[in-house]
Structures are given as C-alpha cells and as structure tokens.
C-alpha cells in the first residue's frame, strides 16, 4: 500500500494523541485537562504537519487555511466535551464544535448542510440537551464538591477506553491513508455532465441567466439543455416553434442547495417518507417515555383511604412516593 503518512509515524502520533486524551479524562486524583489537551494537540499537530508535508511533496494543494483553525477548534472543543466535568459546559462546548464543523462544511462547499447543522443541531437538539441537563442537574445530593456529581467527576476506565478507541482509530487511519491514493476525483467531463443534469431540470434558471446575459429574446423559451463536445448548449425555442442552440455562459452553475434538493427529492423520495415516520415515532416515543407515571397500587389506596377515614391526612403522602416508578408504557396510571 502506498501510505500518505508512514505508518510508524502515524502510530507514534496517534500514541501521543492517545496519551493526551487519556490524561485529560477526569480522574479521582488529578485532572490534567490542559496538559492532556496540549499533548493531544501535539499529536494532532504532528499528523497534520506530516499530511501537509506529504501534500507538498506530492505537489498537491494544501487545504484551506481556515481548515486548520476550524479543525483545531472542533477537535479541541470535542475534547472539552468529553473532559469537562460540568455537563452544561460540555453541551456548550459541543455547540462550539458544531459551529466549527459547520465552518468545515462551508469550506467543503456544503453551505446548505452547514446552516442546517447549525439550525438543527446547535439550535434545536443541543438546546433540548441543555434543558434536560438543567432538569436533571437538580440533584438532591448536596455534599458533592461544587455540585458536581461523582459520576461526572470521574471517568470510567480512561486508559482502557483510550487504548481501545485509538486502536480503532489507528486501524481506520491506516486504512484511510493507505487507500486514499486508490480513489481518484472524477474527471472534469463527468463533473460538467453532472452539472448539466442539474441544469436540465432548471429551465427557469437557464432562461433567467440567458435573458440576463441577453442571449435569449423575450418570447423564447428553453426547451432543453445538452452537453456536447464543444460545451453546454441550451436549446432555445422561439414562439414560432423554431429552435436554436445557445452556449451557456461559464458562470451558470447550479448552487449547492439546488443540487442537493434535486438529489434528495429526485433520488430518495421514499427515504424522506421513512425519515418522516421515524421522526414521528420518535416524537411519540419521547412523549410516552417522558410522561410522569403515578402508579398507585390498590393496597396503598386502601391504606390511604383507611388513614383518611381516621383523619390522618399525612398518610396521603405515601401515595406520592411511588410516583415515577411506573413500569412501562402499558401502565395507564
């Protein structure tokens, strides 16, 4: 295999990363978050450098400068998510990582996805998370230091988890870096063909562009878009039925959203339906699960009734104690 980064270097860098991550996991005795973060960043830095060097050596372009910044922020905030002892902060850091990921999406010319991500994730899901965190953090345990519960304060088996996870990462990266040369980007012709296919479905957009460019007269309409050896031509049909070929301007390319929309709705209509059902079910499930069950068994009822008859109002309190112990969805309280 033709590795982009030499495996030994890869392993070393990953090992450094691993050590850093393992260090930064919260422990009972110490919490070397910063040091761990730095070590991990070193490891990542080594690898990024190695990757950059490899691109330079191969004469291929480096990624956008923003990439480096966004990647560092994303990974760093991710590290904070898993190491921060306060769940609220973790969630906030996660929002940060989502934002930087959205930045990466934009770099990758996936604007629609970037905004969707921000809206759905950072805007909706993470806020729900925050609500839940707030809700669940009304811990009744007071004696914990700084209100951090024990299960947040101490990670579980950081070394094992890190070793296992980084082993997986190592195998994955070996596979990626070994195999990445085997795939090649599509040729320009294919790309253009793909764009043409989108444009064929957007006669209005073509008309507008042609009109703006003055290549088309009023009263004419675009009958189709074809791609030939010479370039992309639109078949413009005049009102009297005559047709002529017009070369499309270079700037006329479909936007990301347009392409995505055609792809999504054209190729995966069934899947969208299924996704909708999933969402519906999830909603129903969430409603049912999060309901507050108050299961009062007959015996307790009888006891309470008897107590009431005796005039002991405090007995009713025992009924409430069972709240939340409901066994499942079938229980109708």
């Amino acid at each position: 295999m033709d590795f982009i980064v030499h495996p030994v270097l890869l392993f070393v860098a990953l090992a450094v990363c691993g050590v850093g991550v393992a260090l930064s996991i919260p422990r009972r005795r110490f919490h070397a978050g910063l040091i761990g973060g730095i070590i991990a960043a070193t490891g990542v830095g080594i690898l990024i450098t190695a990757l950059g060097a490899a691109s330079l050596a191969d004469g291929s372009p480096l990624p956008n400068l923003f990439f480096h910044g966004l990647a560092i922020i994303a990974l760093g905030s991710c590290l904070q998510v898993i190491t921060h002892r306060r769940p609220v902060y973790a969630a906030l850091y996660f929002i940060l990582s989502i934002l930087s990921t959205a930045g990466l999406y934009i770099l990758l010319a996936a604007e629609f996805m970037a905004f969707a991500l921000v809206i759905i994730y950072a805007g909706a899901i993470l806020i729900t998370y925050l609500f839940v965190i707030m809700l669940a953090s009304q811990s009744r345990v007071e004696d914990e230091e700084e209100g951090i519960s024990e299960y947040d304060a101490i990670g579980r088996g950081p070394v094992t988890a890190t070793i296992v996870s980084f082993a997986l990462l190592a195998t994955l990266t070996v596979m990626m870096f070994g195999g990445i040369r085997e795939i090649s980007p599509p040729g320009a012709a294919q790309v253009a063909q793909a764009e043409t296919v989108v444009l064929q479905r957007l006669p209005g957009k073509v008309e507008k562009a042609l009109t703006r460019e003055g290549l088309m007269n009023p009263g004419e309409s675009v009958a189709g878009v074809e791609r030939t050896e010479a370039g992309v031509f639109a078949t413009v049909e005049s009102a009297d039925g005559g047709t002529r070929q017009v070369a499309l301007p270079e700037t006329l390319t479909p936007t990301n959203t347009e392409g995505l929309a055609f792809n999504l709705l054209g190729e995966y209509p069934g899947t969208i339906e299924i996704a909708g059902v999933i969402l519906l079910m999830a909603m129903l499930g969430a409603v049912v699960l999060a309901r507050k069950f108050a299961q009062i068994d007959e015996e307790a009822k009888a006891t309470a009734a008897a107590a009431l008859a005796e005039g002991r109002a405090d007995a009713i309190g025992t009924l409430g104690a069972d709240v939340g112990n409901g066994g499942g969805a079938t229980s109708d309280g």
Binding site: M1, G157, T160, A161, V164, A167, L168, G178
Partner: peptide
C-alpha cells in the same frame, strides 16, 4: 460501558483484519 468497550475492541480487530488482508 464494558459492552461498548468490547464492541469497539471487536470492531478494531475486525478492521485490523481487513487491513491486514489488504
């Protein structure tokens, strides 16, 4: 966690096997 760890280790081994075969 322990189940998840096991699962991850298992996938690591599986991927490693695939890589080795390749």
């Amino acid at each position: 966690h322990s189940y998840a760890t096991g699962m991850v280790a298992g996938s690591a081994v599986l991927v490693a096997l695939i890589v080795l075969v390749a």
